[in-house]
Design a protein around this nucleic acid. Structure first.
Lengths: 132, 132
DNA sequence: TATAATGATATAATATAAGTATCATTTGTC
DNA sequence: GACAAATGATACTTATATTATATCATTATA
C-alpha cells in the first residue's frame, strides 16, 4: 500500500540535498556520508535519474551528479513514474474480458476518486516546494 | 502501490453477492460458481471475515455464511484494516531515532494529506453504498 | 452414518522491493 | 603515462508481501 518506496524516498532526499548545496556537483560518496543511505542502492537510483534526465552526470575524478532541471520542474509524480510506472491505486483483478461490469464497477469508481486526488497532489508537488 | 489487494477485492464481491441474494446463508461453493474465484483462497478470506465479526458462519449441511452486519455498517476502511492493517501510504524509512527531522519532513506531510483524503473516503464508503 | 459444509493451520508459489557486487569506462592529478 | 576517483551497465541476491493450495478436524443435517 506504499505510495513512496525507498527508491523514491531516497531520491527525494538526495535531490533536496543537491538542491540545497552550494556546490553544483555532488558525488555519491558525499550523499552517502551525509544522508546515511546504502551506497550501491543509492548509486543505482541516481543512475536511473540520470537516464531519465533529472540529473546530469560527471564521470571521473571530482565527478558526481548535478540537477538537470530546476527544482521547480521536478515533480513528485514524475519521480514515482520513474520508479514505479504509472500511478494506479486501482488495477482490476480481472483483465477486461472476464469481469462482467468493469465499466460500472462501483469499487473501481471509488478508488478512482482517491487515485485522482493523489495524482493531482503528486503532480503539483515539486522538489522546490519541499525545500520550504 | 495497490490500495485494494485481491483479498479485499474478492471480499467486496462476495459481500455484495451475499447482500443482494434473497437467501440468508450462502455457501462458498455457490460464491465460487457465481463469481469465478479460487475456492481455497476465498474460503480462507471468508473465515477471516467471520473471525472479525463481519460474517456469521453456519457449519454442516446447508451451511455457509451470512452477513453479521447491515451493509450500511460494513466499511471499506474496515475491510482494508482486516486484510492489511492500518491504512498508511506513508511509512518513514527511518525508525524515529535515525531520521533527524521526522516531525517536519515535508515529503511526509504531503503524503499525509493524500492519506487523510483516502482514509476519509474509505471510512465513508460502505457495502451498501456500493450496491447502487 | 454418510455427506456437505466451516474451523484451523501449515505450506507453496509468485511478485515486488531492497540491496549487493563487479567489471567497464571516463577524467583529473601527480 | 599511471593511478585514483568517479559514473555506466548489468547481473545477482535477499527479504517481504501477496496469492494461493492442501489437509485434517469439527459440526450439522438428511
Amino acid at each position: 500500500m506504499k505510495l513512496i518506496t525507498r527508491n523514491i524516498d531516497y531520491a527525494v532526499r538526495a535531490l533536496l540535498y543537491i538542491a540545497r548545496s552550494k556546490k553544483e556537483v555532488i558525488s555519491v560518496s558525499e550523499l552517502v556520508e551525509e544522508l546515511n543511505l546504502p551506497k550501491p542502492f543509492l548509486r543505482r537510483l541516481l543512475q536511473t535519474l540520470h537516464k531519465r534526465k533529472v540529473l546530469k552526470a560527471y564521470k571521473g575524478y571530482g565527478g558526481g551528479f548535478s540537477l538537470a532541471l530546476s527544482p521547480r520542474k521536478i515533480y513528485l509524480g514524475e519521480l514515482i513514474r520513474i520508479f514505479k510506472g504509472n500511478i494506479k491505486l486501482n488495477e482490476c483483478i480481472f483483465k477486461r474480458k472476464l469481469c462482467p461490469n468493469r465499466n460500472n464497477c462501483p469499487l473501481r469508481r471509488k478508488i478512482k476518486e482517491i487515485e485522482n486526488y493523489a495524482i493531482s497532489k503528486l503532480e503539483s508537488t515539486t522538489i522546490s516546494s519541499l525545500l520550504d
